[in-house]
């Protein structure tokens, strides 16, 4: 271990810089924090619910595409102007379509999307219940009589070699 205090200082400095660089890289993904932290929190919250149309499955909050930057600044401007979250979403949907929201609206054209899984579940459970009930309604097989039991026992007692002649003798 080098005991040189100057070297130790240098090492501490490099370590601190590395940590800072990490923080700076992480900050690249976030919205630049404006003057009002409460507003920024609302902007970020809403941006997470919006889809960036350029990188499609990234949210507007996570994307660094120029369009996502534009959308974030629009969201910030409009929220700052006192508009509600719903008004901002409506504004964006009017320009970019329903695709811009991750949670699609509930209406006639999205009925299958919203209700489809539930319908499939009900159909599946119904089918299963129907089959189980039909199986229960079937008469149980008659118990074996004494002659059948004797035959079964004889079959089970037979040496396996006669049934598998291919098997190598060991």
């Amino acid at each position: 271990m080098p005991a040189d205090p100057a070297l130790r200082m240098l090492r501490a400095g490099v370590l601190a810089l590395t940590c800072l660089a990490g923080a700076a890289l992480a900050a690249d993904e976030a919205v630049p924090i404006g003057e009002d932290p409460a507003l920024e929190a609302r902007v970020l919250d809403l941006s997470h619910k919006l889809r960036c149309l350029v990188c499609q499955n990234q949210s507007v909050a996570e994307s660094n595409a120029p369009l996502a930057l534009d959308m974030r600044s629009q969201v910030r401007e409009q929220l700052a102007a006192g508009k509600s979250e719903q008004e901002v979403v409506d504004f964006l949907v009017a320009r970019f379509g329903d695709f811009v929201v991750f949670k699609p609206p509930f209406r006639a054209s999205t009925l299958l999307l919203w209700l489809g899984p539930g319908v499939l579940l009900v159909v599946g459970l119904g089918g299963l219940a129907w089959r189980l009930r039909r199986r229960m309604a079937e008469a149980p097989p008659a118990p074996l009589d004494e002659a059948e039991r004797a035959r079964a026992r004889a079959l089970l007692a037979e040496p396996p070699a006669t049934h598998s002649p291919e098997e190598p003798r060991s």
Partner: peptide, 9 residues
């Protein structure tokens, strides 16, 4: 084509 998003306009 997933890039073609129908426009509401």
């Amino acid at each position: 084509n997933p890039r073609e998003v129908p426009s509401p306009l």
